[in-house]
């Protein structure tokens, strides 16, 4: 039998290797969500202490609202009552995912990517580049990464250190977007596993697509995120359903 993880040993290794850590509020939230018998009041307290998490939960709980004035669900508690704990799980996943995406753009493209309100931007239409990664285990779901073809070329060129017109065919484009999807997803998977929601990632599926549907697992939820750096727009969707056992 595998011995239980040694927290102190891990902290020492994390220090030695220079590993980053997930924000405390997100780690705590993930641990609470991972327990099927967790106290909803405690989850509410953790989310309410973090204005970013609260705002995102309300956005998830009001999927059709164009702005805060249109919210029919206007408190963290009401959002959790209406949408269930799965909503909180999406927050727990979306934060490390967003941080990883922003860090990747900063580190590998020297671009300052910022999270933006998805409703303020025209959603992609027509053929676009789509990467998706599924995860299975105690939590199941998918992460979708979408961008226009010119945006994908800009991203690929930046990561590979070449000019956009030097980017090869769809294979090269797909490999870069697939790796970007891997980096995003790997970071939040670590957070889920640390909280006891063990899951495995499936290989990324990347290609040109006209399909904008985002299937949601039965009983699960979806969070839609958008990011911008200048003219570059990146769309991300996360679907998840915990306790798949």
């Amino acid at each position: 039998m595998t011995p239980p993880p040694d927290i102190n040993q891990y902290k020492e290794l994390a220090r030695r290797y220079g590993l980053g850590s997930t924000p405390e509020s997100v780690s705590r939230l993930t641990q609470l969500v991972a327990r099927q018998d967790s106290d909803v009041d405690e989850i509410v307290r953790v989310i309410e202490k973090d204005p970013g998490l609260s705002a995102r939960l309300l956005r998830v709980a009001n999927p059709h609202a164009e702005n805060e004035a249109d919210y029919s669900v206007d408190s963290v508690e009401a959002a959790l009552m209406r949408n269930g704990i799965g909503c909180a799980l999406l927050l727990a996943m979306g934060t490390p995912l967003s941080l990883a995406l922003i860090k990747t753009f900063q580190t590998m493209l020297s671009l300052k990517l910022e999270a933006v309100d998805r409703n303020q931007f025209d959603v992609l239409t027509g053929l676009h580049m789509r990467g998706s990664i599924g995860f299975v285990g105690k939590v199941v779901g998918h992460v979708y990464l979408r961008m226009s073809i010119p945006a994908a070329k800009t991203v690929a060129a930046g990561i590979l250190g070449i000019a956009p017109d030097e980017v090869g065919g769809n294979d090269e484009l797909s490999d870069v977007i697939g790796e970007l999807s891997n980096i995003m997803t790997g970071n939040f998977k670590s957070n889920l596993c640390d909280a006891g929601l063990d899951c495995k990632l499936q290989p990324p599926k990347v290609g040109l697509s006209e399909d904008y549907s985002t299937p949601v697992e039965p009983g699960g939820g979806i969070e839609r995120l958008a990011f911008r750096a200048g003219d570059l727009l990146i769309f991300v969707e996360v679907t998840a359903n915990p306790w798949n056992e």
Binding site: P5, Q9, Y10, A14, T104, N182, M184, T185, N191
Partner: peptide, 25 residues
């Protein structure tokens, strides 16, 4: 891209020299 606790501990026990998380410079 994975820096989960169990992953890191398992890999360290196997005798890896160092660990770098993507994205990286």
């Amino acid at each position: 891209a994975e820096s989960g606790r169990e992953n890191v501990l398992q890999i360290a026990r196997l005798g890896v020299r160092d660990y770098l998380v993507k994205p990286f410079k």
